[in-house]
Write a protein that binds this DNA or RNA. Structure first.
Length: 475
RNA sequence: CGGGGUGUAGCGCAGUUGGUCAGCGCGCAUGGUUUGGGACCAUGAGGCCGCCGGUUCGAAUCCGGCCACCCCGACCA
């Protein structure tokens, strides 16, 4: 576990050792275990709150979709066909029309929307669904890329292009960016995807890019302005107030269990996970310490009291009464990333105090009076949440570079110990982008929303460029 | 789908000139001593050595075929 030099191995070991997930009998699929699922549930709750707060409603659409639907949007087919799983038989019967397992639901939802939208008065239509999807990827990694994964996908319909664009940005920034930064303590860069990296069938794709502990980028959420592409293919039309029949504008946006991988890779350290308190399945763990029976009794009384007051204060707390030595329990919970450890031993029972130890700094032990525990733990959780964010941002800043020429660019991308984000001008030519990828493995993660003034020379070809891009190796 | 690798106890591995080669560490069970940073002792449970076939008196070990998984690429949230 201490070996983070082999980051991929460190990551995988951590996922399994901490019991977040386990391998399944089916290649590329994983079992999300209770500890991992509890984390996901907390993420779902906080993200769902934001989705609803911005006016969206949840619905559910079917897992199976008729083959013909996939073929309706040309770019969409091309993009997803290679990784689609098919159902061709039910029992002994061959199906008249094969069904595919949704890799995403634009098609079936578009089909339904066409029936539900008649008038401009029906708009906007703002629905979201929480679902599983299947993409038959060649190469998988737990949470980061699994054959089946869990996510939410929002699908909206609008009257005007401006409205659709506003929705796309609202989701990107007010929903996803806010969620990632405030709840997961993961700083992200919001930006526009290049043409070659955009969603199959979209007009424009925006994403949030986060830097992992090895300097690679993880696309953590995406928001697509689909323009009228899907509306045209699926016949989503409405009669406007001027009496004219118009084609609608749609968006879609998604965030998945991949974000769990982000939490691991952004915050994890050589001792294991570091759960952001806001989503930690267990925010504080009480480790009772005793030798003799009478000590245990005195300790138990204080543990019960502290546990009660923490629970009353809304803290997710657990007492670890297992017959193990304290040191064993410390490392056990550190590995699992519990933000705060509370040690309660005979000395503490005697003095009416407890010892708080933040996961972010084990040497920072704090002795707290029993009456003040709830307040102090709550404050400490907030402090840890902030510390994790600050450290992640600091790390990203330290590994973000500006490349003035291609040689410098290549040097940066080749140095494993300094690997990170490289910002540079880009001419906008897909050929240039492809060559950079072929030569350095780095891709354009996004064109950040915040663009510098003026323009410069493309880092690859030197032609005049007005686009400022973030390049990185990506997951 | 190309290149490389590995299949032996729940996990990690050793054993592969054919015959005390069914073993080690961790974990697990029971009992005891321990307990403020990953304890120790004792006693146990647990494996058709990936699968199928062949060679042989005898195969984890040699031969042939198959399967699975992992790593590195191309594809991707």
């Amino acid at each position: 576990m201490a070996d983070r030099d082999d980051f991929a191995q460190w990551y995988q070991d951590l996922v399994y050792k901490t019991e977040l997930a386990d391998e399944s009998p089916v290649r590329g699929c994983m079992v999300i275990r209770p500890y991992g699922y509890a984390l996901w549930e907390n993420m779902v709750r906080l993200l769902d709150d934001r989705i609803k707060a911005t006016g969206h409603e949840n619905a559910y659409f079917p897992l199976f979709i008729p083959r013909s639907f996939l073929e309706r949007e040309a770019e969409h087919v091309e993009g997803f066909a290679p990784e689609v799983a098919w159902v061709t038989r039910a029992g002994k019967e061959e199906l008249a029309e094969p069904l595919f397992v949704r890799p995403t639901s634009e098609t079936v939802i578009g089909h339904m929307y066409a029936q539900w939208v008649q008038s401009y008065r029906d708009l906007p239509l703002l629905y979201n669904q929480w679902a599983n999807v299947v993409r038959w990827e060649k190469r998988t990694r737990p949470f980061l890329r699994t054959t089946e994964f869990l996510w939410q996908e929002g699908h909206t319909v609008h009257r005007t292009e401006d409205e659709a664009q506003a929705e796309t940005m609202l989701i990107l920034q007010q929903v996803y960016q806010d969620f990632l930064e405030k709840e997961l303590a993961i700083p992200v860069i919001a930006g526009l995807k290049s043409e070659s990296e955009k969603f199959a069938g979209a007009l424009r794709t925006y994403s949030l890019e986060a830097m992992m502990g090895d300097g690679k980028a993880l696309q953590s959420a995406t928001s697509h302005n689909l323009g009228q592409n899907f509306a045209r293919s699926f016949d989503i039309k409405f009669q406007d107030s001027d009496g004219e029949v118009k084609i609608a504008w749609t968006t879609s946006w998604g965030a998945s269990t991949r974000m769990v991988g982000g939490v691991i890779m952004v915050h994890g350290d050589t001792s294991g996970l570091r759960m952001p308190p806001r989503v930690a399945p267990i925010q504080a763990v009480i480790v009772p310490i005793w030798r003799k029976d009478e000590e245990r009794e005195a300790v138990a009384t204080l543990v019960a009291e502290v546990e009660g007051s923490l629970r009353a204060a809304g803290v997710r707390v657990k007492s670890d009464w297992r017959e193990e030595r304290p040191g064993f329990k410390y490392s056990h919970w550190e590995l699992r990333g519990v933000p705060v450890r509370i040690e309660i031993g005979p000395r503490d029972a005697q003095n009416g105090q407890v010892v708080l130890v933040p996961r972010t700094d084990r040497s920072d032990k704090r002795t707290v009076a029993r009456e003040a525990v709830a307040e102090r733990v709550s404050a400490l959780l907030a402090e840890i949440q902030q510390t994790l964010y600050d450290q992640a941002l600091e790390f990203r800043k330290g590994r973000t570079y500006t490349a003035n020429d291609y040689e410098e660019f290549q040097t940066l991308m080749a140095d494993r110990d300094r690997l990170g984000f490289v910002e540079a001008w880009w001419c906008g030519d897909a050929a240039c982008e492809a060559q950079i990828k072929a030569e350095t493995q780095a891709t354009i993660r996004c064109l950040p929303l915040e663009q510098p003034e003026g323009n410069g020379a493309c880092v690859h070809c030197g032609r005049p460029s007005s686009a400022w891009a973030v390049f990185a190796k990506a997951y």
